[in-house]
Design a protein around this nucleic acid. Structure first.
Lengths: 165, 165
DNA sequence: TATGAAAGAACCTGGCC
DNA sequence: GGCCAGGTTCTTTCATA
């Protein structure tokens, strides 16, 4: 599906504030409220927008510790096998297979370092895991999924728009 | 600040759908709409909820490639120095200092592998960067900031609630 | 195909208990 | 925390370009 400038501006507005009214978004992008709603509905249907969520401060919920864990897996372990197994550990908030020495990289959130240790032990005991290499996060510098550290929505690279119709 | 079970349930509802109405949330957690609004207002004021955002499919916007980059920095580079410098690169969507051999770990999003290469070059040319070690993401298995891979909000560890008042 | 205007329904918000 | 009322927003329909 093709996104034009208006679609991108609308997405930008919703990334900044998912509870903005259609009228507010319309004023910002130069469209009526009903036109904005139609586009948002379409963006959701086509999957460009997958939902709306609250941004939460993990520490406020007790998640004060995070770590990254590299996974080294047995000979021919498939990505989906890793995904299914890893998905059973709720502390794993993000995971992917990667190039390089390790096979996968996990991002985990825990209540404290002891909790991190227990999670790593639990993951290391998965049958396909040969070894792990983990790093505790010391301080978070940037946390901006699709939002720059300056607070602008991260819609197009370099503020250019190579994907605009 | 202390969060009780109702606060956590409300946060869970908003993590799942930030555009849910107060009445809907109230029905789910067993509270009136106005009571929910009062709690949400308070959760925002105290910083437990930092905002509301749209979940976007990066590929739909052209961000089809991602990579992780380990940063090895000069002798005594401060975390804030790294943060400020790294914040100038919009492709860096997440960054933190970590334990282990590397000093920092960056998560970058780009349009393609060539773009990844350019970003790494740009970052490697920062004065305090001694060397980098990067991994391209092959396939994403889990992407669930405060949401489990099963779609449940990731509010308390192990579905226990050690932080409930 | 996409837009703006309009109207009734639904929702938000603040005051009061 | 619940209830209620007035103002706002959502959602759909309709006419238009």
């Amino acid at each position: 599906m093709e996104l034009d400038r208006l679609d991108r501006d609308i997405i930008g507005a919703l990334v900044e504030d998912a509870r903005a009214t259609y009228a507010e978004i319309g004023q910002r992008v130069g469209l009526s409220a009903s036109a904005v709603k139609r586009r948002v509905d379409r963006l959701r249907e086509t999957g460009a927008i997958t939902g709306f969520t609250a941004r939460v401060e993990p520490a406020a919920l007790g998640w004060t510790t995070e770590a990254y864990v590299e996974l080294f897996c047995a000979g021919k372990t498939s990505p989906s096998e890793i995904g299914v197994a890893i998905g059973r550990h709720p502390e794993v908030v993000s995971a992917c297979t990667i190039t390089g020495e390790a096979d996968a990289l996990l991002h985990i959130r825990a209540t404290d370092v002891r909790h991190v240790e227990r999670v790593i032990e639990r993951i290391a005991s998965e049958p396909f895991v040969v070894r792990t290499k983990s790093s505790i996060v010391l301080s978070r510098l940037i946390e901006a999924p699709l939002m720059t550290s300056r607070g602008e929505p991260f819609i197009a690279p370099h503020n250019e728009s190579p994907f605009i119709a």
